[in-house]
């Protein structure tokens, strides 16, 4: 297995008086796509937010490229080349599509060839370039959120439930987009409930339950073991259709 780009060791996170993460252990190998799976409330989103510094880990360590980033401010974590796409189409609704993308290009105006690639993948963004992002449809907002994360080369993308509430045609588009990123130099950590989507894209999988990581494997091995899926995720055979 490739060396871990990101690793979490014994990470504990409290939100107010609630103890959410109980010693999370996670390795995200360089250059692949790791799926973070688990039932609702397992702590997947909190794990992503803890990596980004949006929630502060109360114990344990988050290391990125060997560097301890546990105590870094969110903006500093982002500046290391880690982009975060939260669930619920987290775009800036009052800004135009153009402003949303320009804002995310931290190192200067977006490069033309990068924009062309984004437009080729998500043509709607070119069409609504000067429109306030709040007026886009749900799927277009999600496209914009992903486009914002990839407007510049990133070392690591953290994506939270990218297919939530999206139409199948848009999901197919997302799969192609993530595959393209994976084939590039980008490492992805994706939280997902849609196992059909996860299985088509994931290289490795980590399963969480009750704030703990309970299983780590290759996606092929995990997809082949339906009894394990049933036990860890509560998935039935129907899910695989």
């Amino acid at each position: 297995m490739a060396e871990a780009l990101l690793s979490l060791r014994g990470v504990e996170t409290h939100i107010g008086r609630y103890h959410i993460l109980h010693g999370v252990e996670l390795d995200v190998p360089q250059g692949g796509l790791t799926m973070l799976l688990g039932r609702n409330g397992a702590g997947k989103t909190t794990t992503l937010r803890t990596i980004m510094g949006l929630w502060r880990a109360s114990a344990g360590a988050v290391r990125f490229e060997g560097r301890d980033i546990t105590r870094l401010a969110t903006a500093d974590v982002a500046r290391l080349g880690i982009a975060y796409v939260p669930e619920s189409m987290a775009i800036f609704a009052d800004l135009t599509v153009q402003e949303n993308l320009v804002l995310a290009a931290r190192s200067g105006p977006p490069r033309a060839e990068r924009l062309d690639r984004i437009f080729a993948r998500f043509p709607a963004l070119r069409r609504f370039w000067t429109l306030p992002a709040g007026l886009l449809s749900g799927g277009q907002k999600q496209m914009l959120a992903v486009a914002r994360a990839i407007i510049e080369p990133r070392r690591l993308l953290l994506i939270d439930e990218p297919t939530k509430g999206l139409a199948p045609a848009i999901i197919a588009n997302m799969i192609d987009a993530f595959r393209e990123l994976k084939d590039g130099d980008t490492t992805l950590l994706v939280v997902e409930q849609n196992f059909a989507f996860a299985r088509r894209l994931g290289d490795t999988v980590t399963v969480m339950d009750d704030g703990r990581t309970v299983h780590h494997d290759t996606m092929d091995a995990f997809a082949a073991d339906q009894a394990l899926q049933q036990r860890l995720l509560g998935l039935s055979m129907d899910t695989h259709q």
Binding site: L54, A75, A78, A83, F92, A93, V102, L103, R148
Partner: peptide, 24 residues
């Protein structure tokens, strides 16, 4: 200016602006 866009982004959601790398 782009600075103004960052301000509007912060107004809308400071956490998201931080997550892009802006020190709000």
């Amino acid at each position: 200016s782009p600075f103004g866009s960052v301000l509007m982004a912060i107004r809308e959601n400071a956490f998201r602006a931080e997550a892009i790398g802006y020190r709000t």
